[in-house]
Amino acid sequence: MSTRWYPIYQRGNPQLRVFLPNFWMKLVHPPPKQLPNTVHFHCSMEMTKYDIRNYLEKIYNVPVIDVRTKIILGKFRKDLGKGYVVKDDDIKYAYVTLPKDTKFVFPDIFEKSKDADEEHLKSLEEAKKTFKNYIHRNKSRPDVPSWFSI
């Protein structure tokens, strides 16, 4: 009777309750052409369509009209350095349809992020400066390793 162990459901038994569900779901970016009331998820492999519906309705309070799922096989690829074959994890996709009038737009999270180039330049300047310092400090002792003095 542990937290993760439930009795087999047989007809007539009381409904099984999940008290501490361990399922995860992540909302992922939809492809460009997508109806506004459809949301794409990745979810735990063990989740059924009913689980997904209950999860969203009970925990997130999101009304769900329809759920479709599919499992995509992880890719087989060769490891870049070693050359052995690696298999990526399989992913369970869930396509959830919300009511007709609702509209979900995936937010643009990095929309107004700080200018990345500027930051890179800044760190580059910093690195240049420290390197200059290091060269200057070791002018008279060229063979001394960098860890020797502070």
Partner: peptide, 15 residues
């Protein structure tokens, strides 16, 4: 707000 936006972090943490 119970919402799908709960799947995302607070807006101020985005960047």
């Amino acid at each position: 707000s119970y919402d799908l936006m709960e799947f995302f972090d607070d807006k101020k943490n985005w960047n």
